[in-house]
Design a protein around this nucleic acid. Sequence first.
RNA 1: GGGGACGUAGCUCAAUUGGGAGAGCACCUGCUUUGCAAGCAGGGGGUUGUCGGUUCGAGCCCGAUCGUCUCCA
Length: 887
Amino acid sequence: MTKPEKRLRCEIMKTNELREAYLKFFESKNCVRRPSDVLVPQDDPTVLFTPAGMNQFKNQFLGIGQLDFTRATTCQKCLRTGDIGNVGVTAYHHTFFEMLGNFSFGDYFKREAIHWAWEFLTDSNWLGLKPERLTVTVYLDDEEAAGIWHNEIGLPLDRITREDERENFWPAEAPSKGPDGVCGPCSEIYYHPPGGGKEVEIWNLVFTQFNRVGDPPDNLRPLPKKNIDTGMGLERTAAVLQGVESNYEIDILRPLCENVGEILETSYQFDGKTGRAIRRITDHARACTFAIHEGVSPGSKEESYIIRLLLRRAFLEGYLLGQKQPFVYQVVPAIVDMMSQPYPELKQTLANVQDTIRAEEENFLGTIERGLGKFEKLVEVAKSSNRKSLPGKEVFDLHQTDGFILDLTFSLAADQGLSIDMEGFRAAETKHKTDSGKGISWGVMAAGPLDELQKSQGETKFLAYEGVTSEAVVVGLIQNGETVESVNHVDLPVDVILNQSPFYAESGGQVGDVGVIRSSRGEIEILDTQKHAGLIVHRGRLTSGEVHLNDSVTAEVDAVKRAGIRRAHSATHLLHHALHQVLGEHATQRGSKVEDDHLRFDFSHGAAVSPDELLKIEDIVNERISEGVPVSTNFMDLKDAKKLGAMALFGEKYPDRVRVVEMGDFSRELCGGTHLDNTGQVGLCRIESEENVAAGVRRIVASTGKKAIERIRNQEGLLKEVATQLKTPQFQELPRKVTQLQEELKTLKQQLDQFTKASVAGSVDDMLKNAEQVGDARVICETLQGVDRETLREYADQLRKQSGSVAILLGADIDGKVALLAAVSKDLVKKGVKAGDCIREAAKVVGGGGGGRPDLAEAGGKDTTKIVDALERGKAVYSEMIAKGAS
RNA sequence: GGGGACGUAGCUCAAUUGGGAGAGCACCUGCUUUGCAAGCAGGGGGUUGUCGGUUCGAGCCCGAUCGUCUCCA
């Protein structure tokens, strides 16, 4: 048993020392020290970010999955945004924080959990906190916990408080409100600082001992194996040990606040005017650094959106303090420096994290600028109508369509001496929330039929590396979310679980296999394969006969598609290698999708990949293919693989034993996918496109093997078709031919235009001569042949130019429909002669409608035989209007 | 997953009720001038993202689709 050297009382424990001491202490209690889980859990659809230390052990708490150990201790990176409004305001709120935890899976229980917590907190070899500064809470009727605290620890009764299910149950209010599943009472430990400051909760011990089934009463059933889940806030406890009032004053956060202060050219004071803003920036920047390190870029979906929000809020705090340029990215080096002792890997992505943050800041500045125009219009309207506040509906509109965060609008409006109609804003917000759909509610920890199967049958034996077919036994059938004994309805979807399977379940970007499962009496077509807690789930539909539980079957993967997937997957590794060669080491994988001879690869890179670079990348990939180097796979310890320099993804969780895929001496990656034996089998790899997917992330789409060839053929086919149509059999002549045709077309259009004008000019004189004199004005009503609407306008223009006071109405038959156009010279318009009024009357005659401006109007109709009548009617209207205007 | 907005010249944007597709900047030519955003005159540049519908007529209205931005979960 190892203990840290006894510290002198006056020495203050550093945060890094606290983290280490905690893990060491629980190692001394035979807990296995596990690394922090990733911040963005891959296999947990119920959360966007890891919210607590126990998250990575959910399955163990449910009794699913094999265990190498029954006691564990961790320091877990966590991210929560529920209380984001309090960040920087209160002493203890963060979005990103670390949680120290110790866990028991059916091993030790309340007695040990309580005793050890007390020992760690008060023993002078560990934290050495004064016992009289600590109080605890327990759940109302948890006599067991209260007894241990009072009788065994010796805590006086007046320092043990009983709290209800809202405070001291996990999940909160679970007994009465649910959800169903694993739950239990908890006991919290509070520290009371000297000097009478507010007490702070530093440790929560959760005793998960029940399974909730339905509503009360009698809905809490004891679990056969009881668990312990405890969480101690690292930053809070460090603040206690360091005797400071706020988490933001501890040794790993205070320097960051000061750094932010320097960047904003103001000095950071805890109680200063800018203190709150700086703490927020510090917190959000820290959260974003970790998340982006793991590959989450700011975006508009899910966790990406949360990161965008955090980043924008951080930036906005600075913006409102007068910092109008990107600055949050400048905080990153100090953050990485502060956090690199426990998380040295942060250094490797520093540059990329900075680039990504900077890009997002610039992006947001653009958004602000765009919205500013709209905002100014709102201000103008409000001021001109003598209002003191901006309408809430409009402000919300600015928020939801232009990303103008309320704080920003608020501050800008205040500069103009305006407030915001908050009632209207809230109303619009509520409406938007209902419009965009109700939230999905999911159980925190409830086991489904798959989990039951996993418990009773264990994991599916995985045979995908060995081949594409195997004998197997049906151990589970699930239809409509329930286990069934057999399936016999052809075409209905069904999930099949086998004792062993050659099907590869979707993972690591590689799609699930498709194929068929056959028994002597039925057949199921498998359309997709997924993984669930060690089970391989074959998702398909019954195509014939029936299939029963315990049937012997042959599982057969579609070998042609599998071969295409192997080509695409090996090509993905070649592409990764080529990207490093051409763009640099920073161009690391951020995600991928590997399908049948088709692949999508996302990677870090700040700018668009130039066409030249793309060619180089494609060349390198195909060189490696033509070299035909062997591909080998080996299992080894994660530590050894990392020593060998195998490429791993940040934000990806790896088991202790990993599979390493090597190609020649140039590529070595941690990968569980199915690969070729030799790179030459890829055949051919063609890059199809390169695009931007998120800030700092580019995507390359490529095809391999048969699809690469298909694609080339298709494009060639298109070229041939175009060449035939253009009568230019030589492909290289095509661009010239197209240019030539375009110019010809342009010249012809211009010529036609000139001819039209000339011919119009020629007939205008005649039309003027035929004009009818009405008072001082002339009225011209004529039918034209073989003209279009454009030409009608040309006539009207020329007639108006060459005549003084004139009212014109022209009619023509265009494509079997009537087209009418009326025009009136300006002086007549002033006298009340309106083209629009005339044409509406005329249009009625030909069974149509129309309108326009007083000086020019257009109309149409259907009855071409009545054009002359329409013109007559128009002439009458004109005459009437002119007469009225003259009087 | 869902809601909202936008898409017009190389760029930034305008176009009243559905009625002639425009401005500024940039570009080209000519003249003037040769010192810090030069001036003047002239000119080129458009399938209004794409497809369909309504209408005599659609940049504008309706539907679909693609793309961009944005909000909610």
